[in-house]
Design a protein around this nucleic acid. Structure first.
Length: 843
RNA sequence: GGGCGCUUAGCUCAGCGGUAGAGCGCUUCCCUUACAAGGAAGAGGUCGGGGGUUCGAGUCCCUCAGCGCCCACCA
């Protein structure tokens, strides 16, 4: 045994991280069977972002689960991943190096990522060079992340780390995609899709958010064919040239007679029909809606279900790029007038075009009254700055709608922690309005392993793509030629075209269980870890990461990807604002760790329940630090200050204390089994503080004495148990103390059980410990109220109470007298227990 | 518009059918041989409002209000 004289928290993190790494304490043993393994689908953080205390909280929650299960005897499959593909990385690289990706440039062989310096003007880079720069920067970011997570004490097996742009991830994503195509579950189609005009990429429903925006409702008159006018209301008058119909509800009496008739759009004089559709809401606007291609998702529904033509006026960059009226598909009573109006709009952004059209409408007399200001929700790409447009483009889709019921059932099979989080999944799946648009018109992502044949005129044949053999994966269709073709045939008539798109970043991260488990690359490993046990994550990505992972697993494996999902809340600053970089209220985790120590920060995290948003509270962290220091000092006392040796545990107080501890062990175990780590921490902490405040004081003199064997043995047994109960929460300080007197790591020690304590506690009555602590407390209270030092000897303590209670106390009277500095204890029969303390009158 | 969650001491939160709890903060006292980056003690709540069930309700039911979040085809 080697107990330091002055134990300290300083430097524990570095020392133990190194030691755990050297000893392979958290190394996964793949020889274990699926039943013996507990597998965690760790969230791969966005490598290009920065970690904040919110990450610290949720990853600590997961680590508590991991450490608990490891101590329960499970072999932990607990890898880390880095989500380094996708738009966030592209954006970070663009800013960091002041570059932009220009896919038209040829690859520059001489470009060196390591020595590249940002220039005054943005440097255009070829796709390949840009990707190389992305890979370079993410590697650097990932090192920083790993340092922080190691400091946080995550018991991850760092040899299992994966990235979402790495070869394994690309292969897994592409393989899953190919199989979706072969099963008919993924398809390519030219279809209207939500589109970000700045990033110029398709965006899936899951990445869309509503933002409240100021708008103007314009009431606009359409000329009816029989004369007269039909009025509609719109906040997007610039889409009038894209109008292909008006719709009204079939039950709406006001417009029943108009259904089937034709009206003419103002300014453009295009004839459009008035049609009936259930979706039209008589309560909204005038009860007649303008259908444009495309203003919103309702337009898409009407366009599809009513078989309407397409008249596109908004281009991919968000500017007005109209066709010519008078030409096929662009009918007008007065093409000259229509094209004159169009020429004014051409090239303008939608916002500007809106103002112009508004003025033109006013001049033409079609504007009824003044536009009414409104605040209304508008759809945005979550990372975008301008409203989404709906633009027709060719995309790959994954079928989701037809699996809706199956996916709902899968959601119900998941054990959600907390359970009510399952409702978010359900409401998301129920609200799905289209298949998953999987392709992104971006660069740093997993390419689609697909080529298209070019016909004699050089037009791609999208309906029958060329797919590689799975053994060739991963492939880059922009670098490699498809089977049976040569590189020279790229882009030539009769040759081929590589799919230029990359997958949605969720397309890859939804494969995290398969990537981490080396699906197909290492079938033996995969069979030992999949389906996994746990998916930990935050609630904001239930509709993305969680949903897509369930979808992929359901379609590929016919199973859930894991049985349980733990959902952490967010962390807010003390003013209840969500922490974010732009608000400048971000607390850097590294500083927090350095200032307070990892165990202290983990304690704060451990106090926050799953699913509940937490406050970043330095006060609470200090409490954690105090607890950690207390563990050191109490351990030092129990282990080193006492010179006697262990004896048989026979003293009633000792046995009673251990009985109480046994109950605490049961409670903590039950709590952790139910993913209620806060409760486990709470009961452990409560016992521990009582243990130090009362038990240590009660046994101190006995333990120092010649017959201290029972006390010393009890102290050590309790300490061993408490260290293990605290180990998932305070991995550093518990390991430190463990190392003073035990072999091996506390984190590989068995989780304590009440059975372990049975021998020492058989027949013991926990009420003895409670009663002794109660009397001691009353004595202390009396002295404190009398403003006396605790060292002042009380002349007498008179315990009133029923006989049974007296009996409990008589056995441990000596300990109470010593701990409380009491000369004599007397007993008086009474129904209600109370304590009377006779103190010396003050001089 | 639909759904979920929250509303308990100044603050952060436990408690979920049986006489109001913890930590922090505040006040007082104590350098007691594990611990002064300590320790001991005290003050402080008609458990959001209103109904109901029950011998008994922060605890179950209904209802209202406020806050937060999720979802929604928001013309």
């Amino acid at each position: 045994m080697s107990v330091p004289d002055k134990p300290s928290l300083d430097g524990l993190e570095a020392r133990w991280d190194e030691r755990w790494e050297a000893d392979g304490t958290y190394r996964f043993d793949r020889s274990k069977t699926r039943e013996e393994i507990f597998a965690i689908d760790t969230p791969p953080p966005t490598a290009s972002g920065s970690l904040h205390v919110g990450h610290v909280m949720s990853y600590t929650h997961t680590d508590i689960v991991a450490r608990y299960h490891r101590m329960r005897g499970f072999e932990l499959f607990y890898p880390m991943g880095w989500d380094d593909n996708g738009l966030p990385t592209e954006r970070r690289v663009q800013h960091y190096y002041n570059v932009r990706c220009d896919p038209s440039l040829p690859f520059d062989e001489t470009f060196d990522v390591a020595t590249f310096e940002p220039q005054e003007q943005p440097t255009p880079l070829a796709r390949g060079n840009f990707i190389a720069l992305c890979e370079h920067l993410t590697v650097e970011d990932e090192k920083t992340f790993e340092r922080l997570f190691r400091m946080a004490g995550l018991s991850v097996d760092w040899t299992q780390t994966y990235t979402t742009i790495g070869e394994i991830a690309r292969r897994a994503s592409q393989r899953a995609f190919l199989r979706l195509v072969k099963r008919g579950q993924a398809y390519t189609a030219e279809a209207p899709t939500t589109w970000d005009v700045d990033f110029q990429t398709a965006v899936a429903q899951a990445e869309i958010e509503d933002r409240e925006l100021e708008g103007l409702y314009h009431r606009i008159a359409f000329e009816s064919e029989g004369g007269g006018a039909v009025e509609i209301e719109t906040s997007r008058p610039e889409l009038i040239p894209a109008c292909v119909a008006l719709v009204t509800n079939p039950a709406d009496q006001r417009y029943r007679d108009l259904v089937g008739s034709t009206v003419y759009t103002p300014l453009f004089d295009a004839p459009v029909p008035i049609l009936a559709h259930e979706l039209a809401d008589p309560e909204k606007g005038t009860g007649i809606a303008m259908v444009c291609t495309f203003g919103d998702v309702a337009d898409v529904t009407w366009w599809r279900e009513l078989g309407l033509p397409t008249r596109v006026v908004v281009g991919r960059n968000g500017t007005i790029a109209p066709g010519r009226f008078g030409e096929p598909g662009w009918p007008s009573r007065d093409p000259e007038k229509a094209n004159a109006a169009m020429s004014v709009l051409k090239g303008k952004g939608t916002k500007q075009a809106r103002k112009v059209v508004s003025e033109l409408l006013r001049e033409s007399g079609a504007l009824v009254g003044e536009p009414k200001p409104v605040r209304h929700p508008v759809k945005f790409y979550e990372r975008g700055e301008r409203p989404l447009e709906i633009i027709t483009s060719r995309q790959w889709f994954v079928k989701t709608l037809e699996y809706r019921d199956q996916l709902l059932r899968r959601g119900a099979e998941i054990h959600w922690h907390p359970p009510y989080m399952g409702a978010r999944y359900t409401s998301w799946v129920e609200g799905l309005n289209g298949d998953w648009a999987l392709s992104r018109q971006r660069f740093f992502g997993v390419p689609f392993p697909v080529w298209y044949r070019l016909d004699e005129r050089g037009q791609p044949e999208y309906d029958d793509p060329i797919l590689p053999d799975e053994s060739a994966l991963p492939v880059d269709p922009l670098e490699e030629a498809p089977p049976g073709y040569t590189a020279e045939q790229r882009g030539e008539p009769g040759g081929f075209l590589g799919d230029p798109d990359v997958m949605d970043t969720w397309g890859t991260s939804s494969m995290s269980p398969q990537i981490a488990g080396r699906w197909e690359d290492d079938p033996d490993l995969f069979s030992r870890v999949f389906p996994m046990d746990l998916r930990p994550q935050a609630h904001d990505i239930i509709r993305t990461w969680l949903f897509y992972t369930v979808l992929k697993s359901h379609l590929e494996h016919g199973s859930l990807p894991w049985t349980d999902a733990t959902i952490s809340g967010f962390v807010f600053d003390p003013d209840r604002k969500k922490m974010s970089k732009s608000k400048g209220n971000v607390v850097t985790p590294l500083e927090t760790f350095e200032q307070h120590g990892a165990d202290a920060v983990r304690y704060w995290a451990g106090c926050a329940r799953l699913g509940v948003d937490a406050i970043f509270d330095e006060q609470q962290i200090r409490v954690g630090r105090r607890l950690a220091i207390k563990v050191l000092n109490a351990s030092r006392f129990a282990l080193a200050s006492l010179e006697g040796s262990e004896g048989e545990i026979g003293d009633p107080l000792d046995r009673s204390m251990l009985k109480r501890l046994s109950g605490t062990v049961d409670e903590a175990t039950r709590a952790l089994d139910g993913y209620e780590h806060t409760r486990a921490l709470e009961v452990t902490e409560r016992f521990f503080w009582g243990f130090t405040d009362d038990y240590l004081e009660l046994v101190k003199s006995r333990a120092y004495g010649s017959d201290g064997g029972s006390a010393i043995a009890s102290l050590r047994l309790a300490l061993s148990t408490l260290l293990r109960l605290f180990a998932p929460f305070l991995p550093y300080v518990t390991e430190e103390v463990w190392s003073w007197w035990k072999e091996g790591s506390v984190h590989r020690a068995p989780w304590p059980s009440s059975a372990e304590l049975d021998e020492a506690t058989a027949g013991a009555d926990p009420a003895v410990y409670d009663a002794a602590a109660w009397v001691l407390g009353e004595v202390r209270k009396a002295k404190a109220l009398a403003k006396l030092s605790l060292r002042v000897e009380a002349e007498r303590v008179i315990v009133h109470g029923p006989e049974e209670r007296q009996k409990l106390l008589r056995d441990v009277e000596q300990d109470i007298r010593q701990a409380g500095n009491v000369a004599a204890i007397e007993y008086v029969d009474a129904a209600e227990p109370s304590v009377e303390v006779v103190l010396p009158t003050q001089a």
